[in-house]
Write a protein that binds this DNA or RNA. Sequence first.
DNA 1: TACCTTTACCGAAACGTTTCGGTAGCATTT
DNA 2: AAATGCTACCGAAACGTTTCGGTAAAGGTA
Lengths: 346, 346
Amino acid sequence: MSNRVTIVDVAAKAGVAISSVSSALNNRPGVSEDTRRRIVAAAKELGFVPSLRGRSLSAKRAFTVGLVVHRDPYVLESDPFFGSFIGGIETVLDPRGYALILQMGSEPVETLDRYRTLAANRRVDGVFISDLGVDDPRIPLVLELGLPAVGVNADPGFPLTAVRQSHVEGIRELVEHLVGLGHTRFAHVTGPHEFIHAAQRLRAWSDALEAAGLPVGEIVEGDFTYDGGVAAANGLLAGRAIGDRPTAVMCSNDLSAIGFLGRAGELGLRIPDDLSVAGFDGIDLGTYVRPTLTTVATNPRLLGVEAARLLLETIETIDGMAVADVDIEPARLVVRTSTGPAPHPR
Amino acid sequence: MSNRVTIVDVAAKAGVAISSVSSALNNRPGVSEDTRRRIVAAAKELGFVPSLRGRSLSAKRAFTVGLVVHRDPYVLESDPFFGSFIGGIETVLDPRGYALILQMGSEPVETLDRYRTLAANRRVDGVFISDLGVDDPRIPLVLELGLPAVGVNADPGFPLTAVRQSHVEGIRELVEHLVGLGHTRFAHVTGPHEFIHAAQRLRAWSDALEAAGLPVGEIVEGDFTYDGGVAAANGLLAGRAIGDRPTAVMCSNDLSAIGFLGRAGELGLRIPDDLSVAGFDGIDLGTYVRPTLTTVATNPRLLGVEAARLLLETIETIDGMAVADVDIEPARLVVRTSTGPAPHPR
DNA sequence: TACCTTTACCGAAACGTTTCGGTAGCATTT
DNA sequence: AAATGCTACCGAAACGTTTCGGTAAAGGTA
């Protein structure tokens, strides 16, 4: 509609050169306090907002960062991680004049192409890499593209900047909690094996049990979905005598734990009297189901905040990519009513 | 890193002017088939990708559209709508070279500011307006800003282009289903009254009952959350004799219906024997809970696809904003096991 | 007074496209 | 043979910033 007010208009109004306007508004030296005030006044009066397009071209920056979600639609739908994670990212980006581009790729290949396109036309200045997989192809890709990136909950040895929330303390606390309740027969329902966090959680669980001198027990592969929890419950519980069943089960995330819980109830098990069940994540839904879900609560929002901070720092670090990793406070055990004393063997 | 290959490099390699390269690559007339081929070859060989930044500045377009989510974090977390909606948007945007900027504002005021900033520095070429409220302030805002926009599930009379999925057929089917099962005492748990879709659903429910010649029954305000469903169940069911209770309840969304279901179970009611419960949305979780949830299933993904199509069309329509609305196929009743024959009065 | 340094400001180039007006060259018409 | 029209191509301007080199004026030193 009405033509935009540009830096030229401001310069004309203030009676100075456009370079002076630029210097004044960006707080660069070389302009007297007096004219600076005059320029600022003119800019304000005209309602001048610097054009991102002009700035982008000149600064060779997009002032935009990207997040490519690489999950199949259903998991994304019911996963509360991203809402909070993105919310956290936003709080950092917005005040610094950056925005977030969100893309979704259902297929891993598709996801890679998204990164490639994003980088090719320089749409973003950097990317987040979440839901890391084992031998994740995105890592060599961003290295090859020279695209600034930060990883979320990466393994040690990760070649890029990373933000992490440790899971080991919380899972150790969970094991200690269960051991303290007298449990001796355990089981673990994992997430899809291609995700490293599924492996990380299993590992912490096994280590803690081993440290307690107890057998690790059964391990069945789940898929992070409600349905996967149901399936796991069928496998671990259906048609088994009490002495043949685990008495304490950890599922790799809350959603599958809730599925497990539901199915266990249908199978006639009383929870936590006959069986203790715990999850991992700390989603709100876990406080609503009955029994309420014991879990290890993570903080995706804070993870988003720190990831964004790191990414901007990486982008604005001219030289190498020597930005230090950040560890936020570990995830912690939250005891609710889905765990209780081990049943008396009869 | 390595300096980018630009249109100048391609022109040099092909031995033509840069304007010819531009014409050739954008399939504009005025360049012979022969040189066009030569240019395309040179571009391919050099791996030329036009810079979005240069294009943006020249074309006065950002090739980006925005979605500002204006919900409180918890609702977003558990709401499956956005995952699918965004997924649908993506499938249209990507092939046309557009990207989606996602912003989140928890406070309505904050949300408005986001739109304002987005428009001020021309970061986006258009926006989606979802979760419309009554007298939504975003409508006058985008009109004032001259920002192309499309509304999602807007009321009739909406002054901008809109995409809609009708809810009335599905809700009518639900009422007919319940009436056919012999129910006569109904109740409705609404969503927050500031959202128009909450009002739209209540209206369709009331109209259908009225058309069936039955009393509308009790109406309690919920908030679209699991917790809100629990609270509604307490209000409608706790401490009431059977003859004093509704026998069929519709909740304005699935999540609250699932909360309602859970609380009703705790209160000792058998579902669907003592009480029928239905929701609205068609989220996957509804197929996992027991009993499985009867609902009216919407199609957020398709809504996203059509919304994106419309928005791009609006943006690319030079003149007025004469882009026709789109109605996708209505939401439909999905009968599961949370609804059944009305209990025999005793 | 003559010289040097600093400061405040300006003009122009650069970023990478698209678009518009212009100009040769050629074929067609009269 | 002159006038006309069309095609293929080129050069330059425009988009809106930031940055860099330059210059005049002011101030400091010998």
